[in-house]
């Protein structure tokens, strides 16, 4: 294995343990965090969010860099041409040149990982694989409790929308997912959605751990005031050990659009909400994630 990671002769993976001790799983249930990486700024935001969460939750961190196998295959095509992003000029894709560029790219991402995770005391591992993006992320997600993705990662062009690979991971991931765009992070103000479910409890716990400023706004999903009151009491009870200033707001309809409106109107913060497999199949949720600018952690 070359110093820069995979080369043409390697099979598939290289795993570099950068530093750190084992993590601990608290009531929030997060012991291991997976961040899917590419060279984009969206992935940088995802990595920084992952490091922050690892620090706050005392969890291990895995950075997964996927070298898209399609890129190498492209080079094998006789008529493959590359169009320069800046020049707009067309040139033949040479295999050796492409390999070199991919190694450089990987090295850059690895250095970024090392820099961002310097402060994290728990184990941080950089993993590099070659394959198709979504399947590789989903495979690695089985070992993690949270998967973090950059919203516009793996896009051929600059975008702030969910790319197909990200959509695929979000809809099928076996773990909780956090998606965020470039320029944002897991920062206060923290907002949590509570529906009384176990995921809701975990969502509260996670949001409470991440509320560095001591404030937490809780959206209660309830159709009637009685239910809202009960859920509010339950939330207070759940968080009684924490020294937090709690603010409650009741959403009588658990509509995504109302939630999106609330998030858009107030300052960007981080939204932690419970999700189940059923809701994730709902395109409306994915559309909500597509539209909102705030980081959203879906707790499964």
């Amino acid at each position: 294995m070359s110093d820069q990671g995979l080369d043409d002769r390697d099979t598939n993976e290289v795993d570099l343990a950068i530093h750190g001790r084992e993590g601990t799983e608290g009531e929030h249930g997060i012991a291991r965090i997976l961040v899917a990486l590419d060279p984009s700024e969206h992935s940088r935001a995802a990595l920084e969010a992952g490091a922050r969460m690892a620090l706050r939750l005392d969890a291990e961190l895995i950075g997964l860099f996927i070298e898209d196998v399609n890129v190498r295959r492209l080079a094998e095509l006789p008529f493959a041409q590359e169009v320069g992003l800046f020049t707009g000029g067309c040139r033949r894709v040479e295999t050796h040149e492409l390999s070199r560029q991919l190694r450089v790219q990987a090295g850059s991402v690895r250095r970024r990982f090392r820099t961002v995770t310097q402060r994290v005391e728990t184990r941080c591992t950089f993993r590099q694989v070659r394959g198709r993006v979504a399947p590789e992320v989903l495979r690695a997600a089985t070992e993690a409790d949270v998967v973090i993705l950059g919203k516009g990662a793996w896009s051929p062009f600059e975008t702030e929308r969910l790319t197909p690979a990200v959509r695929e991971v979000l809809s099928q991931a076996p773990a909780s997912t956090l998606v965020l765009r470039a320029g944002t992070g897991v920062e206060p103000p923290m907002r949590a959605v509570y529906d009384g479910t176990s995921q809701g409890d975990r969502a509260l716990s996670i949001a409470a751990r991440l509320a560095e400023d001591g404030h937490l706004m809780v959206f209660i999903l309830a159709d009637d005031p009685d239910k809202a009151s009960r859920l509010q009491q339950a939330a207070v009870e759940h968080l009684k050990e924490r020294e937090l200033e709690l603010t409650f707001q009741t959403l009588t309809e658990s509509s995504v659009s109302r939630l999106a409106h609330l998030v858009a109107v107030e300052a960007l913060g981080t939204l932690v909400m419970p999700a189940d497999d059923e809701s994730m199949e709902d395109e409306a949720v994915l559309d909500f994630l597509d539209e909102t600018g705030a980081p959203v952690l879906l707790v499964r």
Binding site: E76, V93, P156
Partner: peptide, 23 residues
Amino acid sequence: VRLIRTPAGLAVAPVRDGEVLSP
């Protein structure tokens, strides 16, 4: 066909089931 992002630019390649066709 599909747009593929390379380290230095963009390329167009034929695909099947999300994978670039081999020669």
